[in-house]
Design a protein around this nucleic acid. Structure first.
Lengths: 227, 227
DNA sequence: GTCTATAGCCGGATAGAC
DNA sequence: GTCTATCCGGCTATAGAC
């Protein structure tokens, strides 16, 4: 499996995500023609995600968004009822992206070591394909209200748990040397996050996601496989 | 070396840092009595750093800062000439913290493996002691203007280079197995950053910085030491 | 559905009293 | 040195025309 194969086999797309958003927000989105709504949602969200990467959601005024997306202030407000709802919308959807994809990928694998490699690789490929979303989820979670922030924390802990489970399974059957599963999962997550948080660095150095994945997997293998 | 020893031997303190800031900003800081100025700077900076951790610098209004610090708007403006200058001031000072400390710690060590362990440990201890500053440097660097942002990037690459050098030295003399030095340094940095970016997580799990340091060092050793 | 115009508010910054 | 009072620009959000 390499990134191109992964990408071509994936059904994820901005179109799909925005259609999902449209269907889940039938009450607040005032535009009734699905085709129009989805088209504009794609424009809006792409613009917001780009702003977030270049500066931040907070620093983006709705006038900025209006200008950059080509939609008027009035038009924007028929897709969300406040700037904060727009933030929530993207955060919530961002969290759902890929839930299930990694679990499905590792489901049919009996060997913990191979399971771990697959989980790492799929996570990296997913974050490569959906980088803007992952970046936004990480960097813009601070401005959320308390309940939304709790959800964000739970999502972080949930994906970490996937790694903890694999690590404990591997330790139990002697495939991994005895290591602190929770701490190991934490730093694995840190390595995965670095890929989408510091894309500028890896781009500048011409590191591809395949190289990064191979490297991280080798590094983890060396650190935890039983001898 | 453990964290307590490190902490007690360190001369770093809010007082020292603020005195340095006061001396470097003699032109913009209108308050002439050093004792008064330093005392208020400590209050101001502590308040700002706390805001950054709880929400963000952007989300903090100067009225918020005024209320929380107990200083009036007018008083605040005798310590900086604009909100943006306040940001720059903290960023610049934050970057200087600990430059030299890590280099000094590893200077007298001949063995690359031991050098690497020391660099990791000192970096973690330093970021533990100065967590607010490290957090601020990382999270609030996006709002900087272009020149300040370049400096921030250079600082990131500079500390990374320390690790690259150690890794290449160790690979050259056969102490480390052949690994991609730049990528290895990157993920080591990611592990170090996780400590101060996700303090809430480690606190919740009762992981101390000593435990984290021991763990990370062991993990890296296992991954890169030649067999 | 989308636009323009504008209400109403909030935040950064300053002037001048004490 | 520090305060209060105030200016003014830019922001979110809405009203109403097309």
């Amino acid at each position: 499996m390499n990134y191109n194969t992964f990408k071509q086999g994936s059904t994820l797309s901005m179109e799909r995500i925005c259609r999902a958003i449209y269907q889940q927000h039938g009450d607040t989105i005032k535009v009734k023609k699905e085709a129009v709504a989805v088209r504009n949602l794609i424009t809006i969200l792409n613009t917001v995600l780009d702003f977030s990467i270049r500066t931040s959601f907070d620093a983006m005024s709705l006038r900025d968004l209006s200008k950059a997306s080509g939609l008027s202030m009035g038009a924007l407000y028929s897709y969300f009822s406040s700037k904060n709802e727009l933030l929530d919308m993207i955060q919530t959807q961002g969290r759902e992206i890929g839930v299930g994809i990694i679990e499905a990928a590792i489901a049919n694998d009996a060997d913990p070591a191979s399971k771990l490699r697959t989980a790492v690789r799929y996570h990296l490929y997913l974050s490569e394909m959906m980088q803007k979303w992952f970046y936004f989820s990480y960097m813009e979670s601070k401005n959320l209200n308390r309940t939304a922030q709790k959800k964000s924390i739970q999502a972080e802990l949930y994906t970490e748990q996937i790694f903890i489970d694999i690590l404990e399974e591997g330790a139990a059957c002697g495939r991994f040397r005895l290591i602190h599963a929770t701490l190991t999962a934490s730093i694995i997550k840190a390595m995965l996050q670095d890929w989408y948080l510091k894309r500028w660095k890896y781009k500048r150095r011409n590191i591809t996601v395949d190289q990064y994945a191979d490297f991280v997997i080798d590094f983890i293998d060396a650190a935890i496989l039983a001898v």
